[in-house]
Nucleic acid binder design. Structure first.
Length: 461
RNA sequence: UCCCCGGUAGCUCAGUCGGUAGAGCGGGUGACUGUUAAUCACUAGGUCGGCAGUUCGAGCCUGUCCCGGGGAGCCA
């Protein structure tokens, strides 16, 4: 029995091979008089390999009836192709049918819309575009670890289930084993004491608060895992379940944070260009014609660094008509961010030092007492890809901020402890993994860069 | 959640003035061919998103609900 060779290896071959075994799914079959051409794909790479099946092969009548989607096992010779368009092809000596695909197989040999493919999310990775994005997703997941591990950041597995309702980053999903048809109540309210954990439990909206405690122990750390937001968001940039990367650096300030953010994004894009060249080419050709120019631009220039106050001035002086007015103290609207990154600078922009009232309690108060050391990295087409800040490390200031914002400081006892015992300046950010994938692929809907998207009213698969 | 647009064959779409539906691709059958989304001929395939209404008559008009897309908010 010969060992199976993946198509990616066969296509890279330096010489002909007498005897190879390959498995895969038929992408298309063209029948000729004395033989048939099969385009076979096994997911190892974007390219198919062409298999020549002579009509004297065993079971030929059944083989030529195979349609797009069928799975076969091929034994044969790797030979130089007589046709144009490919270097190698397989001269089959035997074909075993593993699984047929009846004529209602939903993927056809033509372009399908993303909307349609989303309704068959269990089959869409068998298409070129989706196999490409999911290979890139895998490669980039690895690259993220490589980036941090090369820099001695420790990967911290922060919890998915959390008891703090104080993460403050949005609506949370509840986690319970209680009988929802008969919820235990006390004084008219849900009696969480009878719940599994004895208190209200939720899915995490951010690992940041947890990972900060490890930052203030192990130095440089990061999280990379699923994150959940129960917001009723219906946009091409939001999902209820997504993956987020949150690095946190001890003995670091906002400048260090911006530097890390830029290096990180540039590293991942370079990695994609080097390690996913074939898949990337598909996106540059069929999804976004400007993709390579956009990526080149991002890796070869420093990101613009622009204080929020200057951004407001710039927008006010731009003579642009905006639907929403630009005003110091208000958050920048999408249209404002788009103007900065897409029209004015035409490259990534880091806006920093935002008004304190529009940002989270844990962000470090600047000396002007009006702004906090926060930064957002904005990129063309996607908008905010990174949101970060230097954290408030001063115990008294942090405590005051918690109280001023109407939170109960008792809920934050362990978080405050980290500032009570050996506090140090530190900073970090969150990067949405799917938004990064959108950036490097040109794919414009976030639901198309994750295997099974979870969005409001959508939990199929 | 709000604003705008859409839902017609397996897929992508056309459908005029309100008069019971068409194309291309895909499927099937056959022809032809070292082919490359092959080509050519024939053929099957429809609860026009659901419900209610207006009308002699609704794919088309009205209401409502569901689903999808674009934009906005929330943010990564």
């Amino acid at each position: 029995m010969i060992e199976r060779t993946k198509i990616i290896e066969l296509l890279k071959s330096e010489k002909e091979q007498e005897s190879v075994l390959l498995n895969g799914w038929i992408r298309t079959q063209r029948e000729s008089k004395a033989f048939s051409f099969i385009e076979l794909n096994d997911g190892s790479c974007l390219s198919n390999i062409q298999v020549i099946v002579d009509n004297d092969i065993g079971g030929y009548e059944d083989i030529v009836k195979l349609t797009t989607g069928a799975a076969i096992s091929v034994t044969g010779k790797l030979v130089a192709s007589m046709g144009q368009g490919q270097k190698w092809e397989i001269q089959a000596s035997a074909i075993e049918i593993m699984g047929i695909a009846p004529d209602d197989f939903p993927l056809q040999k033509k372009r399908h819309t993303d909307e349609y493919l989303r309704t068959i999310a269990h089959l869409r990775p068998r298409s070129n575009k989706y196999s490409a994005i999911f290979r890139m997703r895998s490669k980039l997941s690895f690259a993220i670890h490589q980036f941090f591990q090369e820099r001695d950041f420790q990967w911290i597995h922060t919890p998915i289930i959390t008891g703090s309702d104080c993460e403050g980053a949005g609506e949370m999903f509840n986690v319970t084993t209680m009988d929802l048809n008969n919820i235990p109540k006390k004084d008219g309210k849900v009696d969480y004491e009878q719940c599994f954990f004895g208190k209200e439990a939720s899915l995490t909206v951010s690992g940041q608060l947890s990972v900060e405690t490890f930052c203030l122990s192990l130095g440089n750390v990061y999280t990379f895992g699923p994150t959940f937001r129960a917001e009723n968001s219906n946009t091409s940039r939001h999902m209820s379940e997504f993956w987020m990367i949150e690095p946190e650096m001890a003995f670091a300030d906002l400048q260090d944070d911006m530097k890390l953010g830029q290096e990180f994004v540039q590293y991942l894009i370079k990695y994609t260009m080097e390690e996913c060249a074939e898949d990337l080419e598909l996106f540059a050709k069929f999804v976004d014609k400007n993709l390579m120019a956009t990526l080149d631009n991002i890796v070869s220039n420093d990101f613009v660094r622009l204080p929020y106050t200057d951004a407001v001035d710039l927008l006010l002086k731009s003579n642009q008509k905006f639907e929403f007015p630009v005003k110091w103290g208000s958050d920048l609207q999408s249209e404002h961010e788009r103007f900065l990154t897409e029209k004015h600078f035409k490259q990534p922009v880091i806006v920093y030092d935002y008004p304190k009232d529009i940002k989270a309690f844990y962000m470090r108060m600047n000396d002007d007492e009006k702004t906090v050391a926060a930064m957002d990295i904005l990129v063309p087409a996607i908008g905010e890809i990174i949101g970060g800040s230097q954290r408030e490390e001063r115990y008294d200031v942090l405590k005051k901020r918690i109280n001023d914002m109407g939170f109960d400081e008792a809920d934050y006892w362990w978080y405050l402890d980290t500032r009570k015992y050996g506090t140090v300046p530190h900073a970090g950010f969150g990067l949405g993994f799917e938004r990064l994938l959108m950036l490097v692929s040109g794919i414009s809907n976030i639901r198309d860069v994750i295997p099974f998207p979870r969005t409001p009213k959508n939990l199929e698969f």
